[in-house]
Simulated assay, not measured.
Amino acid sequence: MSVYSYSVTAMNGREVSLEEFKGKVLLIVNTASQCGFTFQYKELQNLYEKYKEQGLVVLGFPCNQFADQEPDSNEKVEAFCLLNYGVSFPMFQKLNVRDHDAHPLFTHLADSKPFRGFNEKHPVAKILIALIQEKLPHYMEGDSIKWNFTKFLIDREGEVFERFESTTDPYEMEPIIEYVLKR
């Protein structure tokens, strides 16, 4: 099944079928404004600006499931992203990305590409892994989303091409994004 089967809610409340992005390369990201990885907004915006003419669209999905790092309203989240990081890529209303009330899109994404571990050389990795092991050890089970800024690269046919964990900075994905854009 492709991601085009799913609909999501834009910040303005409009239901958006992902089929609207058919033929584009998508980078779907669960985000949070008060996370150790929030700096990735800047890199995601830079990638979007650099590659949007070639067909890349970044889609941001705020989520408050990980240590309450996205507690604000959709309106405040949208303003935060614009004012602090100049985010111009599409942002959607807050949703859950794991467990029994996960949005079906994120269940599909997690089921499509397995969790292969965090990059333990990332400067935030030791803190993240210790936090999850201490407070949320069940989050490490299975292939579910483990933390904010998990990224899924979707090819032009709507299929999940690759999964990148929080500890993969967006610039590290650039060669793979370029490859998928040229396919």
Rank of each mutant, 00 (worst) to 15 (best):
S2G: 12
S5Q: 13
G13P: 13
S17P: 14
L18I: 07
E20A: 06
K22C: 05
G23A: 03
G23D: 10
K24Y: 00
I28A: 00
S33C: 06
Q34T: 01
G36P: 06
G36F: 07
F39S: 07
K42N: 02
Y48H: 10
Y51F: 15
Y51N: 03
K52H: 15
L56S: 05
N64Q: 01
Q65H: 11
Q65E: 12
A67G: 09
Q69W: 13
E70H: 02
P71W: 10
P71E: 08
D72H: 09
E78N: 10
A79C: 03
N84D: 07
F92W: 08
D99R: 09
H100Q: 09
H103E: 02
P104F: 06
F106R: 04
L109C: 03
A110R: 11
S112E: 01
P114A: 15
K121V: 04
K126W: 01
L128C: 13
I132G: 04
L136R: 11
L136S: 12
H138N: 09
M140D: 06
K146M: 02
W147C: 04
W147M: 05
N148A: 05
I154V: 14
G158D: 03
G158E: 07
E162R: 12
Y171F: 14
E172A: 13
I176V: 08
I176Q: 06
E178F: 00
Y179L: 14
Y179S: 05
R183F: 02
